[in-house]
């Protein structure tokens, strides 16, 4: 009887430990699952990477206001601004706007701009062909750069969206890049 209980306990504990390990793994599995969900739903204005230029039928019947915002992550020593604050575009038209960023330090800097589009569900309709945000940017000491963003608003954008805001935040990645 006693032996019987010990065996039963051992078997049960083994199963439960597997559950625990499985749930630890599940916690990590939530990371890719979240990315997949964000891609599907446009949650948090996550945007896809570069797309090839293809021609859309331009929708002259409506105008979309596209706003550009720039921000610096805390303690990033840069100047960063958009040369265009906002423009009105017809869906399907290609436009290029310029951004200016400058390294304020006397050392070389590696920085990364992270885009965010709001409202989130509109994110998938704003296609970028060219963007400085696709890769890390290297700045020499005191260097300033003008960087273009070429984009198009997909004409399938639902009617209810009149304004799309494209926001970039520059992060100073010099330290982590050096380590890599």
């Amino acid at each position: 009887m006693k032996e019987n209980v010990t065996q039963k306990n051992t078997r049960l504990v083994r199963i439960l430990v597997f559950v625990v390990l499985g749930m630890f793994g599940f916690g990590y599995a939530l990371v890719p699952l979240y990315d997949v969900l964000c891609d599907i739903t446009g949650l948090n204005g996550k945007v896809e990477a570069a797309v090839k230029e293809e021609s859309y039928e331009v929708d002259k019947s409506r105008e979309i206001t596209v706003e550009f915002m720039t921000a610096l992550n805390e303690s990033t020593p840069m100047v960063f601004r958009s040369e265009t604050k906002k423009i009105k575009v017809h869906p399907g038209e290609y436009h290029t706007v310029n951004f200016y960023a400058e390294n304020k330090t006397d050392k070389a800097m590696v920085a990364r701009a992270i885009p965010s589009i709001s409202p989130g569900p509109a994110a998938e309709y704003l296609k970028k062909i060219e963007c400085f945000c696709f890769s890390e940017q290297t700045f020499k000491a005191r260097e300033g750069k003008t960087m273009p963003v070429r984009f198009v608003v997909n004409p399938e954008l639902p009617e209810k969206y009149k304004t799309i805001t494209l926001a970039y935040t520059f992060f100073d990645n010099t330290e982590t890049s050096v380590k890599k």
Binding site: L16, V20, L21, M23, F24
Partner: peptide, 10 residues
């Protein structure tokens, strides 16, 4: 046992 490992992961 279902949630503590998830928190540990986070």
């Amino acid at each position: 046992i279902a949630i503590m490992p998830v928190f540990a992961g986070a």
